[in-house]
Each structure stands twice: as structure tokens, then as C-alpha cells.
Simulated scan of single mutants.
Amino acid sequence: MKGNQLLISMLSIISIGLIVFNIYFYSELSSLQAAHESSSKTHLSHHDIIQAVDDRLASLKKRNAKAVLSRLEEQFQLANETTPDNRLIYGNPNAKITLQEYGDIECPYCRKMHGVIKQVVHHSQGVINWEFKHFPLGIHNPVAAVEGQAIECIKASYNNRIAWIALDKFMMDTRGNGQGINDVPEYVRSFGLNGSLIGNCLASDDHQDKINQDYQDGQRLGISATPAVRIIDNTNAKTYLLGGYKTSEQLLQAIQRITWGG
């Protein structure tokens, strides 16, 4: 009985959605036809009407995506628009502690730890910041490297805050393990970015040197898997390297170890 009620409710919602769309579609047709008749006293061709409606719908979709980006920016105020040395930093750039993560967007454990690090930074009241370094694993390439490049393209084309929004969304929406996100330029359009701009940047191979440099830096530290977090005390340059997924409690214990010797 409950299943039937659920089905009826779903069908009702779908029907209402179709009715709303039809009302919008036909109102667009009517307004376009009226505007044309008032100016030229001639009728639009069927093709012209459909094209005009498609343009209106595309414009509406673009406005909605811009609204999504505006709401996301409000949620990422901890990420400054600019950062020292153009680093990918979330949180106070002058924080006492830096959690320098070497991550792979395609890595499921990086995805799991992404929210953990973010929570630690949010609760630190400016004491801890988070720097993301690209470490695309061979088993996840070429997708992981391309996604890392896309983040750097977004940072260069927009700013650090928008790059963090994109990094967060990529982490959450990728299918993972090298499967990636279908059509990156179209995907970034969904949250208000210029897909053509990012697509051209990817095609030009810009920022590949940055990805390679991050990867080589990680290798010199002895990193071979992700996630890996290098905890840096910026007051005395002491560091501590953690490998693998860690809980917020484990991260805080490690921070105490290098700051207070606990």
C-alpha cells in the first residue's frame, strides 16, 4: 500500500513538473511571437521560434549556474581569493600550522579525508590552514593528472577561492579510481564557470609543470601513495608526515606532537 502511495506521489510530482515546463515553453513561444509581430508584422519560422526558445532556456540555465556559484562562494569564505606564491591554500595564509596534503582527486581515501581536513581547519579558528598539492597516481592517470590541471586552470583563470570550490566539487562528483568526470568543460559550466575557457586551458597543456613539480616534491618526501599529509609548524619549520587516511582526532594528535611535544 505504501509502495502504491509512493508511486502515485512520484507520478504526481512528474506530472506537475511537465505542466510547469509546458507552461514556461508556451509562454516563451507566445512572448516571442508577440514581440516579432509587433515589430515586423510577420510570423517567425518554426525553426526561428525553436532556436529562440532554446536560447532563452540556455540563458536561464546559465543564470542558474551563476547563482549556484554565488552560493558556493559564500560557503568558501575561508579560502582567500589570492594567496602567497599562488599556492592552493584553504584557511588563514598566516596560520601557525599548515596541513600540506598530497592528494589525488581520483583517490577514494582522499575523498573520504577531504571533509575531515576541512572540518579541522574550520574548527581551528585560524590556527590551521590547508594546502593542496597534486599527487596523481599512475593507476588513476591520465584522468587524475588532467583533473589536477583543471584545478590549476581554474585558479589561474579565476582565483584561489573558486579553485577550492572546484576541487571540492570534483572530489565529491568524480566516479573515482580513474573514471573521472565526463566532459570537464561542460561540468564546470554547471556551477557557473566558463567551460570554453577551461577547455582551452586544458588543450594547451598549461600548468602541467605545476602538477609535475608537486608530484616530484612528494616523491622527495618519500610519498608513494595518497592521501599523505605533511604537518608543518610555520613558527619553527618542524614537520611531521602522515600517510594514509586519518581521522580528525589522529590529525590533531599529530599536530600536538610537533607543536607541544605531546
Results as ranks from 00 to 15, higher is better:
Ala156Thr: 13
Lys66Trp: 05
Leu252Asp: 05
Asn92Lys: 04
Val188Met: 04
Cys110Met: 04
Leu69Asn: 07
Cys153Tyr: 02
Phe76Ser: 13
Ala58Phe: 04
Lys210Ser: 12
Leu88Tyr: 10
Asn141Glu: 15
Ser190Trp: 07
Thr235Asn: 13
Ile105Pro: 03
Leu99Gln: 05
Glu106Arg: 08
Asn94Thr: 12
Met113Gly: 14
Gly244Ala: 05
Ile14Met: 14
Gly222Phe: 09
His134Thr: 06
Ile232Met: 01
Ser39His: 09
Ser196Gln: 14
Lys133Phe: 01
Leu88Met: 14
Asp85Leu: 10
Glu73Ile: 05
Tyr158Phe: 09
Asn94Cys: 03
Gln33Tyr: 11
Glu106Ser: 12
Gln219Trp: 00
Asp217Ile: 12
Ile19Asn: 02
Val229Asp: 02
Ile151His: 03
Gln5Cys: 02
Leu57Val: 11
Glu147Thr: 10
Arg71Gly: 06
Asp214Cys: 08
Lys96Val: 12
Tyr90Ala: 10
Gln100Ala: 07
Tyr187Gly: 03
Asp168Ala: 11
Ser204Ile: 12
Leu44Ser: 04
His114Pro: 00
Pro136Trp: 02
Lys96Pro: 03
Ile128Met: 06
Val120Leu: 07
Val121Met: 08
Gln119Cys: 06
Asp168Trp: 04
Gly262Ile: 15
Glu101Ser: 12
Gln219Tyr: 02
Gly192Asp: 05
Asp183Gln: 14
Gly195Ala: 10
Arg111Glu: 11
Pro227Phe: 01
Asn159Lys: 07
Thr235Glu: 13
Glu106Tyr: 08
Asp54Arg: 13
Ser39Pro: 00
Asn212Tyr: 01
Val143Leu: 02
Gly103Lys: 02
Gly218Trp: 03
Leu88Trp: 07
Lys155Phe: 04
Asp209Arg: 09
Cys107Ala: 13
Ile198Tyr: 01
Ala67Leu: 12
Asp48Ser: 15
Arg220Lys: 15
Glu249Phe: 07
Pro142Phe: 03
Gln216Asn: 11
Leu32His: 08
Gln179Ile: 06
Ile151Met: 13
Gln119Arg: 15
Cys107Phe: 12
Leu6Asn: 12
Glu152Arg: 07
Gly180Pro: 05
Gly115Gln: 03
Ile128Tyr: 07
Arg175Asn: 14
Ile117Ser: 06
Tyr158Pro: 05
Tyr240Gly: 03
Ala203Pro: 03
Leu242Cys: 03
Glu147Leu: 11
Val146Thr: 15
Thr83His: 01
Leu29Gln: 13
Tyr90Met: 10
Asn236Cys: 09
Glu106Phe: 09
Val146Ser: 11
Tyr215Gly: 03
His134Leu: 09
Lys66Val: 09
Lys96Thr: 15
Ser204Val: 11
Asn141His: 09
Gln77Ser: 14
Gly148Lys: 00
Cys110Asn: 05
Asn200Glu: 14
Gln250Leu: 03
Asn212Phe: 02
Gly261Glu: 02
Pro108Trp: 10
Cys153Val: 09
Glu74Ile: 07
